[in-house]
């Protein structure tokens, strides 16, 4: 009888090509950091140099130290903090509502074939309609204020979550459900103990997809009709020719996206340790 515990490092594809002589720990950590982030560091260094010696037009691509300074000024004066707060609030409410609405509805739809069949065509239509295309409709309905902004993000994030949840439920192995039944599990128990946990990895795929979409729609909505928010700041800084500030806001948005994804991955690792597909 054989027994294998998959080595965590091996599974994550960590160091597949060990250096012949790893040397001290710090050195090897530095090497691995260089392998992962070397190109990114080179990109930033190249930008900084090219802009400083004016290979790039510094009016369009200011040196990174000026971008960093603009970011520092914006944050220390509190101006950017307000923008971040309002942006987080908009996307947070919309994303939260999409989760609160999409996951239960998806679980329900995935369970009951008739409901799923009846709703699927309309879902497919809505999903294929770009949320940005219907944003003007939401503006007509709700005005240019917060409601239409939150709603367009909610609309765009709802479908990935909903469809991933339905997919997760539908793909649960019928043999596992049968197994639970042989022990006398009720429909509710089977749902709680088998269907729900089996769907979690798939739901996370939807959540991570939606988080990206949420950010995209947030920026678009803030560029179209807002006087606050990080997306607004990108546009506004450009109008006012505050290019370092513009880049500061762009980097801030990228960071928000990375942070959201990172939080979701941490959560997924906690909830789906068992799954071979967990990142």
């Amino acid at each position: 009888m054989t027994y294998q515990i998959a080595d965590d490092e091996e599974r994550s594809g960590g160091r597949r090509f060990p250096w012949p002589n790893p040397g001290p720990r710090i050195l090897s950590a530095a090497r691995s950091g260089l392998a992962d982030y070397g190109l990114l560091i080179a990109f930033f260094a190249g930008w900084q140099i090219a802009s400083s010696v004016e290979w790039l037009n510094p009016a369009v691509f200011p040196p990174l130290d000026r971008v960093a300074y603009a970011l520092y000024l914006g944050i220390s004066s509190g101006a950017l903090i307000d923008d971040i707060a309002i942006s987080l609030q908009r996307s947070g409410i919309a994303f939260g509502a999409a989760i609160a609405f999409g996951i239960p509805l998806g679980l329900f739809m995935g369970q009951i074939r008739a409901v799923e069949r009846a709703l699927d065509p309309i879902l497919q239509l809505f999903r294929q309609t770009s949320a940005l295309a219907v944003y003007p409709v939401f503006i007509l309905m709700m005005g240019l204020g917060e409601a239409s902004k939150v709603f367009v993000i909610f609309w765009a994030t709802l479908f990935p979550i909903l469809l991933a949840t339905i997919g997760g439920v539908k793909e649960v192995d019928a043999k596992l459900i049968e197994m639970a039944r042989t022990f006398g599990a009720s429909r509710l128990t089977t749902f709680r103990r088998v269907v729900l946990p089996a769907s979690v990895p798939s739901i996370f795929v939807g959540l991570r997809l939606s988080a990206t979409t949420a950010l995209l729609l947030l920026i678009a909505a803030e560029m179209i009709g807002a006087n606050k928010g990080v997306g607004f700041q990108v546009m506004n800084a450009q109008y006012n020719f505050q290019i370092p500030l513009m880049f500061a806001a762009i980097f801030l948005l990228a960071f928000l996206g990375l942070a959201a994804n990172w939080v979701l991955i941490l959560l997924q690792r906690r909830l789906c340790r068992w799954s071979p597909n967990t990142p």
Partner: peptide
């Protein structure tokens, strides 16, 4: 009074061995 053993183990991947073995009783 009857229990079934299938050709495939049909284990719940999100439960450890102990959780899987206790599953039938817990369901009951």
């Amino acid at each position: 009074e009857r229990a079934v053993i299938f050709q495939e183990p049909r284990l719940l991947l999100w439960l450890r061995v102990l959780g899987n073995v206790a599953f039938g009783l817990e369901v009951q």
